[in-house]
Design a protein around this nucleic acid. Structure first.
Lengths: 190, 190
DNA sequence: CCTGAAATGTGATCTACATCACAAATTACC
DNA sequence: GGTAATTTGTGATGTAGATCACATTTCAGG
């Protein structure tokens, strides 16, 4: 399906934009295509954009001591990815974003987002909603991380994204769950 | 200091409201005073308000199996607390909010927030910013939970809220860190 | 379709933290 | 200010999951 249409339907669920308003919004995005494994945001760089996933799957991750990777988010179609901390504060990226599969994204600059938010009230409304949804999801995950064991968390993830099982290596699933790949492997065979 | 003034200065950092706009905003809040230990939101109830802390300290917590408590947030002055998931979705509360110390809060209903967000663009802007800040903080904490051991997390918390050490029982600090009170106790004496 | 690299499985061992149990200290309140 | 309730300290023991090591399988690219 057409990227513009996907974004339009995504936004329409929340914000009532006229066609002209949506066109104004959409014109600020740039369509980009990436191959599996390509990097979108590199830790240490300045972050200027956020990315709306049209197709494929991205991951947002943190690497500690150049050794261990933790995945903050798998971004599937109609989700948004970036280092939001860096994007909003102007700091250098501490998390990276890259492509788990081939992917198409619509990217929007920080400056353009702020401008359109000022110009069109309903766009600001949309972004408030979107961030709120992310916040609630993040709190839920934090709670699950504190409260549930690996098996439980694994089943939660699979319930939420069944398709993930086939498209991403198991190590990445382990990195999302915050567990070693060995432990996750042992979990399957039982 | 005057609750109205505290909220005004908090909002002014982000959103440029005229005095009339701010008054319109403020008039929707209701000032409430609570004693240490009093309950603000009970798990299972319907949630209709969010709470801006003027003085004192609240905690947002989840209790699992009626046994273990996990603290999602200590809400200090100028922070906001609620079960945001329940508040936005209309679901019953899954987390509770109560008072760690005597506290004064300004409460705002969900309906009033949405109404004033529609009426005054800058208020919507303010709430987008606030939620974004919460989202970023939540992501950071999630990462810390996955990446750092208890000692590290304890030191982080103390760096962020040194005053907490004196005003809350150590068990609550343990519940925030996601660790048993015994382990936390052993941490001190070393 | 072959070959090196990446991903996965599996055993042995180690460790941070949980849990249980009870004693000591602190705090709230009649 | 004395007594009960709550909070904290500390030992003994249990366990989920980490780490290391190496074998096996799968996959991607020439």
């Amino acid at each position: 399906m057409d990227p513009k249409q996907i974004l339009k339907e995504h936004v329409a669920k929340i914000a009532a934009l006229t066609d002209e308003e949506f066109d104004n919004f959409f014109d600020r995005f740039e369509l980009q295509s990436f191959k599996k494994g390509q990097t979108i945001i590199t830790a240490g760089d300045k972050v200027n954009h956020e990315y709306f996933v049209v197709s494929g799957c991205l991951k947002t991750f943190y690497i500690n001591d150049d050794i261990k990777m933790y995945i903050l988010q798998f971004a599937m179609p109609t989700w948004w990815a970036s280092d939001f901390n860096a994007l909003y504060s102007g700091a250098k990226a501490t998390v990276g974003v890259d492509c788990v599969t081939d992917a198409e994204v619509l990217r929007l600059s920080n400056a353009d987002r702020e401008e359109i938010c000022r110009e069109v009230h309903q766009v600001e409304h949309f972004f408030r909603w979107r961030t709120n949804k992310g916040y609630v999801a993040s709190q839920k995950r934090l709670l699950s991380m504190m409260n549930n064991d690996v098996k439980h968390r694994y089943e939660e993830l699979m319930a939420q994204y069944p398709e993930l099982y086939n498209i991403v290596p198991k190590q990445l699933i382990a990195a999302y769950l915050g567990v070693s790949r060995e432990t996750l492997s042992r979990l399957y065979n039982s």
